[in-house]
């Protein structure tokens, strides 16, 4: 597989662009800051369409559900949102996320 092909196939920003070209509504969620031991680094993306299909991640799987729900709102309203998650609560602990972490996720519509 060539560099360009693997880029297009797995990369969430390439996927977002492809979805756009297919006429879908798309939102991008980005980790903009982290405190403590956050599972995904600053700059990580989760992209989703208006049906709730998503690719990529902003955490180890704990907050993605919440992000997708909020993103559906962002897609319909067009208003960007800043989400904050503490990953030290019980839910985080149960799914095995590192304790003491906190992340801020910016969710915006493309276009």
């Amino acid at each position: 597989m060539g560099l360009a092909e693997s880029f297009a196939e797995q990369d969430e920003l390439a996927i977002a662009e492809r979805w756009m070209s297919e006429g879908k509504e798309v939102a991008i969620a980005t980790v903009v800051s982290t405190w403590g031991s956050a599972p995904r680094p600053v700059g990580s993306h989760l992209v989703m369409d208006e049906e709730g299909n998503f690719e990529g991640s902003v955490s180890g799987g704990c907050v993605e559900g919440a992000v997708v729900t909020e993103a559906l709102d962002v897609i319909s309203s067009g208003e960007s949102k800043m989400l904050e998650f503490g990953v030290a609560d019980e839910t985080a602990w149960e799914v095995g996320l590192s304790c003491g972490g906190k992340i801020r996720v910016y969710v915006e519509r493309v276009g």
Binding site: D11, L13, A14, E17, M20, Y106, E108, V110
Partner: peptide
């Protein structure tokens, strides 16, 4: 995000150029 920003970003990344998306939060 401006769709053009996304398109140009992917173009730069595909061409192995360094790029920064500056977002006014």
């Amino acid at each position: 995000m401006d769709p053009l920003t996304l398109k140009n970003l992917n173009e730069a990344r595909n061409a192995r150029k360094a790029a920064i998306v500056v977002t006014n939060l």
